[in-house]
Amino acid sequence: MKKLINSPESVLADALAGVAAAHPELAVDVPNRVITRAVRPAAPKVALVSGGGSGHEPLHGGFVGPGMLDAACPGEVFTSPVPDQVLTAARAVDSGAGVLLVVKNYTGDVMNFRLAAELAAEEGIEVRTVLVDDDVAVRDSTWTAGRRGTGATVLVEKIAGALAERGAPLAEVAAVGERVNAASRSFAVALTAATVPAAGKPGFDLPEDEIEVGVGIHGEPGRRREKLRPARELAAEVVDTVLADHDLAAGDEVIALVNGLGGTPLLELYIVFGEVAARLAEHGVTIARSLVGNFVTSLDMAGFSLTLTKADAGLLELWDAPVATPALHRS
């Protein structure tokens, strides 16, 4: 394992110290592991709090700022935050208008955020939760923990964050978050496995010429293994897989996110995006907005995920609203 770390035990604390040093616009509580905006919103508004295991940067800390999150709670690498963190964050950012928790659907995240929500409610903080579960690689049935939350998290946080910034009440902010999630589907392909610093070796062994299809963002193996193929074929298969689970029809518009998993160059992500656009055009689906880059990563995993969110005028208007965070910026 070759990593730019001091020690596997201090990865999170050292990274948070770096975030604090790099971003004076953020307030980083290193001992409690909570990132908030350094400058509070001028008027009371619904506060958005998210969090999850570390290793998915810039998710979630990179999305704290005007127009998006009010606080992020990073857990240990690939481990959900603990309830104390979420409660500390909720207390810090609640202005009386309530707190929306944006939670990716993983067993640990759901439990820890649920315990935190119960504690916050006992303190009189109004709390709602939006669960993000967009990954079509997992069959949503009684046979699984349900679909994983992946790329759609960025869209939920951006769009709900924009509505909250305008002073909408908690119920409406939660509703738009749920609407974005329901309109989103994602699917990922990995070329290599991620190496968790504490484990010191890749989460699974993948031969040089094979890829893991339907992979998650925690180093767990995917749905199946295949031989590596040209980007055109892979992108087409991923588009078709997402569309097969989507209610998109010819003439519909989407927000398309081609997301790098951490170890893939932007050059390759743009190759993939070009192929995705071509395949979507064959299906008659129009890309209304696009986002290409590393937003929901899995440490050093090579590969990409595709998220397609069915768009309408209302969602696009919120998507286009100003945002000022370390990882997403639009004036």
């Binding site: 481990t79 959900s80 603990v82 104390d84 067993t107 640990g108």
Partner: peptide
């Protein structure tokens, strides 16, 4: 355990 573990095992064993 609830305060220190995270993941699924913290809340489950902690509870």
């Amino acid at each position: 355990l609830i305060s220190k573990v995270g993941g699924a095992s913290g809340p489950l064993y902690g509870s």
